[in-house]
């Protein structure tokens, strides 16, 4: 554990809780992509199955349980409790275009051919692109609520901070996992456009709207 990873994890946690609280408080999930949330639920489920097979630390296990519960809680709010507020007309990204290639890639480029390892790899590849339906939705509606922008910023920062963590771990522990590093870089690049808009608009008190 180092400061970059801790900040990354906290940023990730903040993003997930921010979304959950926003939906709960406003009694609405308008502007949130249900498809991205489904993808994140698949990501957490396939990655954290190792809760049953390997133990790293209390910290890791607790975080995994929180991420899983919050993710399924978000799905429950979006597709059940506040379903009438879900803006499915604008959530039109085809997620099979992400689910299938990520699955194929996880069979092609993987550290070891075991069920748990292929599922872990799949979760890494799918996570890298899971935000695309949400970013597509923002581009279709041309705007995002400020709290949604904060959510996206925290979620994007998490992997960017993990990149710093991997650089640090490379020099201090000789840690080098190219699958997660390259996927993490791709994931962060997808947010760059959004980061630019966030810094130039939202941080100056303006609403995020596209030209």
């Amino acid at each position: 554990m180092n400061i970059f990873r801790l900040c990354g994890d906290l940023s990730h946690l903040l993003a997930i809780l921010l979304l959950l609280v926003k939906i709960w408080k406003t009694r609405s999930c308008a502007g949130i992509s249900g498809k991205s949330q489904i993808l994140f639920a698949i990501v957490y489920t396939t990655r954290y199955l190792d809760l049953f097979t390997s133990f790293v630390s209390i910290y890791n296990s607790v975080m995994k349980i929180v991420f899983l519960s919050a993710s399924y809680g978000t799905l429950y709010l979006m597709f059940y409790k506040f379903k009438p507020t879900y803006d499915h007309n604008h959530d039109s990204f085809r997620i099979l275009y992400l689910i299938v290639p990520a699955l194929v890639l996880s069979f092609v480029i993987v550290h070891a051919y075991t069920l748990m390892e292929v599922l872990w790899t799949y979760s890494i590849y799918l996570e890298a692109v899971a935000i695309m339906p949400q970013l597509f939705m923002v581009s279709r509606t041309g705007e995002a609520e400020t709290i949604t922008s904060h959510y996206l910023f925290a979620l994007g920062s998490y992997r960017a901070l993990y990149i710093l963590n991997w650089i640090y771990r490379y020099y201090t522990e000789d840690f080098l996992d190219l699958i997660v590093i390259i996927a993490g870089i791709v994931q962060t690049i997808l947010y760059c456009d959004f980061f630019y808009l966030y810094i130039t608009k939202v941080l100056k008190g303006k609403r995020l709207s596209l030209p």
Partner: peptide, 10 residues
């Protein structure tokens, strides 16, 4: 046997 890497991150 196949050796799996240990994943210690989230």
């Amino acid at each position: 046997p196949v050796t799996e890497p240990e994943h210690d991150e989230l």
